[in-house]
Amino acid sequence: MTEQTTWIGTSWKMTKTLAEARAYARVLAGCDWAPGIRPFVIPPATAIATVAEVLSPGGAVLVGAQDAHWEDEGAWTGEVSVPQVKDAGARLLEIGHSERRAHFAETDERVNLKVHAALRHGLLPLVCVGETAQQRAAGAALDTVTAQVRAALAGVPATTRVLLAYEPVWAIGEHGTPATPEQVRDVVTAIARVAGPARPVLYGGSVSLDNARDLLDLPQVSGLFVGRAAWDAGGFLALADLAAQPAPQAPGGPYS
């Protein structure tokens, strides 16, 4: 039987100096990861090369970039390209985070362009999708999220691996409200149905040690995309250790 991969990752957003990034990466570099755990970290662009150097190319921990332009080069002042972040050591590209959608005009069309750019250069896309509180209240969560998934994957062969991260907008950030497993279940099931078997679905949004086990136990959740709870290396490792533990058996199961 093929061992299931559990993805555990974090984006540092706009935090950490080079010294702080290097110290964090050194902790991860000294770890022996449990079988089946696939860790990844996404530093700010300024620290990609530093973190990638500490973690070594081809190492167990994937290094990502928080964004990149869809064009390979050109007059795009302030932007970085996929070839540039790859050259710095990124092997994964985060695309379509709700903060970029809300504040930086990240449309579904641009998300799709970036997915194709990442794949063109051999990076693994990590596409973030999620509904706002207003969309959920209106009963439009499933339609909103599945539309985002379909748009992101337009023109991508069904067998091409892409990671999807379900991050309800109302659940992320310092003031987010943690989602219950019941609120997550139907959405991740719909994402998996639309995306297909080659696309693992992660969950992100106020993830903590208190709720991580329940989220990981959902059948369609293949990992966690963590924010503040993993900005400290110890927090990241604690979540990875939890993910490596066997799921508790339901009453009447083989070990009851």
Rank of each mutant, 00 (worst) to 15 (best):
L218E: 03
Y255A: 14
V162Y: 03
W70Y: 14
P57M: 03
P178M: 12
R193W: 06
L242W: 02
A192D: 11
G64F: 03
V194N: 05
L209S: 13
A52N: 04
F40T: 05
H97P: 01
V194M: 06
L113W: 12
V82Q: 09
W12Y: 12
Q134S: 14
L164T: 02
A137I: 00
D217F: 00
D87Q: 15
T50A: 15
L202D: 10
W12N: 04
L209N: 13
G205V: 09
E109W: 02
G235L: 10
L28E: 11
C128A: 10
D217R: 15
S256N: 10
P44L: 09
L163A: 01
V80R: 13
E106L: 03
P157Y: 13
N211I: 10
A52F: 04
L93G: 09
G196W: 04
D217I: 00
V115S: 11
L18H: 10
G64N: 04
L237W: 00
G205H: 07
T132R: 08
E106A: 12
A195C: 09
A49P: 02
A212H: 08
E106S: 10
A138E: 14
L237Q: 05
A137Y: 00
G155R: 10
E109H: 10
A23L: 11
P248L: 14
K13L: 11
A158F: 01
W7Y: 15
L123H: 05
R22G: 01
C31M: 15
E167W: 08
K13G: 05
Q245L: 15
G89S: 06
S208V: 03
D241F: 00
A60Q: 14
A23G: 03
R38W: 02
A105C: 09
V80H: 13
L224K: 07
E106W: 02
V149L: 01
E106F: 01
G59V: 03
E71S: 11
V115R: 11
A244H: 02
T189L: 07
I191F: 03
E94R: 00
P251A: 15
R100M: 08
G196K: 05
Q134G: 07
E106C: 11
A75P: 01
C128N: 05
L124G: 03
R101H: 09
A165S: 12
V187R: 06
V41E: 10
K86I: 01
M1I: 06
F225M: 12
V162R: 01
A179H: 02
